[in-house]
Design a binder for these strands. Structure first.
Lengths: 351, 351
DNA sequence: ATGAAAGCGCTAACAC
DNA sequence: GTGTTAGCGCTTTCAT
């Protein structure tokens, strides 16, 4: 019943030319085709609503024009923005991103990589959650173009676009110290990811330098390893963390945490526990997702340029696809503090 | 330099069998293959890290196992959740979703449809923003399986999974009326989308029925048509709307708006203008995105089940792919009120 | 300037 | 039970 798909042969027949000519016209090569024929072909193609079959093309050329993208989650707006950047950059260069989420599951990540290889993607953008990073290296050993982004892999020497988590950790500590805070708490999910460890160590180092060495009793780590519904789970995790903080009667006047959503949870629970933010306790987030500006109090946070990171990563990958032999590019995106309302300045008169 | 891709021929050579046998083993057909050969092939495939080329397969079979998904945006968490649902359902059925965002641009939407056709997707999930819906019907006339979801198309008779916007509008009005509000305002972006018109008319009808016919002076519509960065733009739009509301000295005690993000903007600006929520003015949102629960005051809103809608839409499409002749399925997801803290009950003693 | 034809990797009908 | 082969739609070399 369903009409057969229109192929290059149909167009050729209709225009009374060979398929080779049709191909030339369709691909608009600089190949010289008689104007009259060219128009006849174009007309036939249009009339038949011809649409080249990518499979035929890709099979022949070995090029899919597809780019695989693997991310841990979709529901965290940070990643939505990353994807938006990736998509924009890819499409404007004529590539099609295939977006996959690993849902924080290492095995699924591996599976997706194989899937994408089967689809002959010309390259992949990977934000890996695999701690065993060797398998990524193996893939690169083969002939897949890869750019590691977001989550760094220690000692990785290929293309990467990552974020300077260490410095970000330093920044948040310094900012708090400069605002007059001397007793600061660090609230986090388990340190399974490189990024969290890096933030923490930057944070500790900065405190040491300023003379207020971090006190272990101010470190609160929740037990939750698996975030199934990432957005809401991280929020709940924040609430849990705040409860721990409150219960411990922690004397800290400021709290640093690992992402904005967690910060939202912390703030909500703090307020519920009778603790005003920032009057009684200051909170500084991490990511600067869109909602941080909408929250009340508007969240002071460390910006991790999501959209730009997506854009950059895609750009680096496309460069790599064009030239397989160029030197590897390693981009380290820098953090910046975004001052809003959730941190109180103890050194200035309160308003 | 880069090693050639391993093909079925390589595996066949290595195992000392024909490519047909390899194909049979790989696809694990119930075709009878000698156990010894089977193992030899499997071993060879594994050793060579063979990965079938989807293009060859798809070209031959005409099946891509891909499903195209077109959405207006990615940055609004409502859509992130929809996608999460779609992805989960597709993958568990062995399909691969190709996600595209039209960025609220009708032309881009059409372009994406063509792109997806070129990729031989077996079906598409479309949340259309095209007001001219005929072109969608044309596509269906051809041999593409389509499920319209999220944004309904009037008089559409094919498969669809949409949301009962009209009833949602009624619900919000009724809820407010039941809470004792008699003067209610409606704040919206321009009525270009069917969904917004439907919400508005449900809202008006419910008010009429309750005897408090809606007064036109309480309708505020902003001018902004194009949301480029959807998330943040909608927030800004909310702020703009709240300014208009404030400036007009509107006597309404409650505000209904078209989505949660806009509600966040409205609330922020209201508060900034010295108007407490919900003490002075109540606000009811729309969507129930994750952040609504995190906001303060936690947002009372109409839930539009995003993840489930994605799941349902994918499921309907997959059913359709399996049986092209079955009757069309039309699912209308029902709204529900989510009571939180942004609406004040005027009929009960205030706390 | 145009056409004929090979062949990309795979599946499935057919031959043995 | 296994192998041979045609051909899916396309690009591109090579003749003409």
């Amino acid at each position: 019943m369903s009409k057969k798909r229109v192929t290059i042969t149909d167009v050729a027949k209709k225009a009374g030319v060979s398929i080779a000519t049709v191909s030339r016209v369709i691909n608009d090569t600089d190949y010289h085709v008689n104007d009259e024929l060219r128009e006849r072909v174009a007309a036939a193609a249009k009339e038949l609503q011809y649409m080249p079959n990518f499979f035929g093309r890709s099979l022949k050329s070995g090029k899919s024009r597809d780019i695989g993208v693997i991310l841990p989650s979709m529901v965290n707006p940070f990643y939505s923005e990353v994807i938006a950047g990736v998509e924009k950059e890819c499409r404007s260069a004529g590539y099609n991103p295939i977006i996959c989420t690993s849902s924080n599951k290492p095995d699924k990540e591996k599976e997706l990589i194989r899937l994408l290889q089967g689809k002959c993607v010309e390259g992949m953008l990977i934000s890996t959650i695999n701690d065993d990073s060797d398998f990524i290296r193996k893939i690169i050993g083969a002939d897949t173009n890869i750019v590691i982004f977001d989550q760094p892999i220690p000692d990785f020497s290929g293309d990467s676009v990552t974020f300077d988590f260490y410095q970000a950790g330093m920044l948040s500590a310094q900012y708090l110290v400069n605002s007059g805070h001397t007793c600061i708490a660090f609230l986090s999910a388990p340190f399974e990811r490189f990024s969290r460890r890096a933030v923490y160590s930057g944070f500790c180092d900065a405190l040491s330098k300023s003379g207020d060495a971090f006190q272990k009793k101010n470190l609160f780590i929740s037990k939750v390893k698996d975030f199934k519904k990432v957005g809401i789970d991280e929020f709940e995790n924040g609430r849990r963390l705040a409860k721990m903080f409150l219960k411990a009667h922690c004397p800290a006047t400021a709290i640093v945490t690992i992402n904005d959503i967690t910060a939202f949870g912390i703030i909500q629970e703090l307020v519920r526990g009778g603790c005003r933010v920032p009057e009684d306790v200051s909170v500084i987030g991490f990511d600067n997702i869109n909602f941080s500006a909408m929250f009340s109090p508007a969240l002071t946070t460390i910006s991790q340029p999501s959209f730009e990171m997506g854009t950059m990563a895609a750009r680096v990958l496309i460069e790599r696809i064009k030239d397989r032999n160029k030197n590897s590019t390693q981009i380290l995106m820098k953090p910046a503090i975004v001052e809003r309302e959730s941190v109180k300045k103890l050194t200035e008169p309160s308003k």
